[in-house]
Nucleic acid binder design. Structure first.
Length: 623
DNA sequence: TTAGGGTTAG
């Protein structure tokens, strides 16, 4: 197991750590910016333009007949894309033999057509052919190819192209820079993205528009800095750059995910004050957030609001609802929602069906999940990585880890790449079935394959070690985690404290618990209950009771599990008076004795022991 | 003329 530890360190030292940094120019005061904004004027002009044009808005499918055949083809293809990249290559072949040579715009449109159908690598190779044939390119061509490199995760190539732009004397535009910033964000390099954006602003290299602000706002939200995203929204307004529906949607979504649904609803109201029309995406994010809080009444309100705005629910909306019901165990309702969406002309996809499968797997009804899978396949919808992960989880929870591993091995043959979640699920399965050596080997394999561990993998690893009596090993892994800069959360501490108590390491458990606040973490009801259980096990009833008082002082109310744990502790330690008081207190809070407490109580009431406190208790419960 | 464009579901 110590090999597991060193492997763990190696993995984390090579991983980038998210930093909750925020825009330097907001933190250190605002430099002189000249954003009084041609961008806003452009937006305003565009708005006027679209308003005045709207009655006779040109048909986007209409192709003017003064264009050459080639131009017509390219215009059409840049709209719909090429089905087969080979077709684009053939067109390119013809183009570069034409005399006179088609214009740079024609060639750039060919690239745009490839981007449309996500054939990024083909676009890059066409571009390099263009360069070697000496076909002229311009800043738009470069920006298009930079975008392709970013999508291909070759951010270094993208920056090499920026260097080439400077070398050839072209001037990058806001689009070029925003594309690069977006590339950095998508590669988890948010700090660099932020640095680049604020540098460009400070040096007046760009006049940021809503899209460029949205890109940074998106990055802030994705790195857990929603409040900074809010500040940037206010900043862009102050600078006269109008936020758009996407700006709001990005922040509303992030707030909803942070469970701050009321703040998100506040932004919805703000949109309406400013005359910004919400979209179905706005509502979907809100519905998702509200579902997570089980505020069903609010969902009906939102649906009425959508109706008022003439916005119809789409596939995402239904999928969110299917998922919420399935997770809540209401699989029949989830099934009904799928029927309803079909009746309303929406087509459930792999996400929708997988959500339903997950619902069945969570209930342990693997057979029904498999029925959903075959329904899905019969409709021509192929399972994806997430579907496999859900099924693998279903099999692991049923202790059928070998079948789960077979599914994992099947994935590459189906063109699917398992994610860290897929691997972590199997790791959990191996630990649950106490196949420790295999868990170890599997973990090594994960690391060798370059799987980037996340906090959930750490939880599974620590939990697996603790449950198998290896709390000491878990502690070593935990210290490595800390020294590698990965921030342990409260769940990690709960797992460790529980494990340490199980191993009889009371002092270590106590000191971890006391360190929580130093680490900026707040113990929750689960943490306190684990402490109570641990102390009770060790016969330290006084300390256990002190924890109960401490949690109340800290406004963390004990729940049914907390009371039952402490009451059982009293029983075990023959503290029958205390148990009686606690039982009354528990009932006064509306909680009940659980099965295990009840059976202990029952046994005690039958007992022939002559303890005066026990006799008093017998008198109380069996008068 | 041509490019970034996002945001939502498992």
């Amino acid at each position: 197991m110590s090999r597991m530890r060193s492997a763990f360190t190696a993995c984390f030292t090579s991983n980038a750590i998210h930093d909750k940094g925020f825009l330097g120019f907001l933190r250190h005061g605002t430099p002189a910016l000249t954003t009084t904004s041609s961008c806003c004027r452009v937006i305003a002009l565009l708005r006027l333009h679209s308003l005045s044009q709207s009655p006779t808005c040109p048909n986007p499918n209409h192709i003017p007949n003064h264009l050459t055949k080639l131009q017509q083809l390219l215009l059409e293809k840049s709209r719909v894309g090429f089905d087969k990249p080979d077709d684009a290559l053939r067109v390119f072949d013809k183009m570069h033999r034409m005399k006179p040579l088609p214009s740079v715009v024609d060639f750039t449109q060919l690239l745009a057509a490839l981007v449309k159908t996500k054939h990024y690598s083909v676009a890059v190779s066409v571009f390099s052919k263009m360069c070697s044939f000496g076909i002229p390119v311009n800043i738009v061509t470069y920006s298009t190819v930079i975008n392709c490199c970013c999508h291909l995760k070759h951010i270094d190539y993208a920056f090499a192209l920026l260097a080439a732009i400077f070398k050839r004397g072209f001037i990058p535009t806001i689009v070029t820079y925003t594309t690069l910033v977006r590339g950095l964000v998508s590669q988890d390099k948010f700090l660099e993205a932020e640095l680049m954006f604020s540098y460009l602003l400070q040096h007046n290299q760009i006049e940021p528009d809503a899209v460029s602000f949205n890109t940074i706002i998106d990055g802030l939200c994705k790195t857990g800095n929603t409040s900074q995203a809010m500040r940037l929204l206010r900043y862009m307004e102050k600078k006269g750059c109008m936020p758009c529906v996407v700006t709001y949607n990005t922040i509303i979504d992030s707030l909803s995910k942070d469970r701050l649904v009321d703040d998100a609803l506040g932004l919805l109201a703000e949109m309406s004050d400013k005359g910004i029309q919400p979209s179905v995406v706005t509502y979907n994010s809100l519905i998702h957030g509200i579902c997570n809080l089980d505020r069903w009444d609010d969902i009906s309100k939102l649906f009425r609001d959508m109706d008022r705005h003439k916005i119809s629910p789409n596939m995402h909306t239904y999928s969110i609802l299917v998922d919420a019901h399935a997770r809540d165990g209401k699989v029949k309702d989830a099934e009904y929602l799928i029927e309803l969406m079909i009746r309303r002309g929406q087509h459930p996809d792999v996400v929708t069906y997988s959500a339903l499968m997950d619902g069945y797997c969570l209930r342990g009804e693997l057979d029904k999940a498999l029925v959903v899978l075959s329904t899905m396949i019969s409709k021509g919808i192929l399972p994806d990585t997430q579907t496999y992960t859900i099924l693998i989880n279903g099999y692991c929870k049923k202790m059928k880890v070998d079948t789960a591993i077979t599914l994992l091995e099947e994935m590459p043959m189906k063109g699917l790449t398992p994610t860290v979640e897929t691997y972590s699920t199997i790791l959990d399965g191996l630990f649950r079935t106490r196949r420790l050596d295999e868990a170890h080997m599997f973990y090594r394999k994960m690391l060798n394959q370059g799987v980037k561990l996340n906090i959930v993998t750490c939880r599974i690893l620590l939990h697996g070690l603790c449950c198998n009596g290896l709390a000491g090993e878990a502690m070593s892994v935990f210290h490595d985690m800390e020294s590698c800069g990965l921030l342990p959360d409260i769940h990690i501490y709960n797992i460790l404290i529980h494990g340490l108590f199980k191993d009889g390491k009371v002092d270590e458990a106590r000191s971890l618990f006391h360190n929580l606040r130093l680490k900026g973490l707040r113990p929750g009801v689960i943490s306190y209950t684990i402490m109570i259980q641990g102390f009770c096990q060790e016969g330290l009833l006084e300390e256990a009771y002190k924890i109960l008082l401490e949690m109340e002082e800290n406004n963390c109310l004990p729940n049914e599990v907390t009371y039952n744990t402490l009451i059982r502790g009293c029983f075990k330690n023959k503290m029958y008076d205390g148990a009686c008081v606690l039982i009354d207190e528990m009932c006064a809070h509306g909680f009940k004795a659980d099965a295990s407490t009840t059976s202990m109580l029952f046994d005690l009431l039958q007992s022939k022991e002559q303890d005066p406190a026990l006799l008093a208790m017998q008198k109380k419960f069996m008068p």
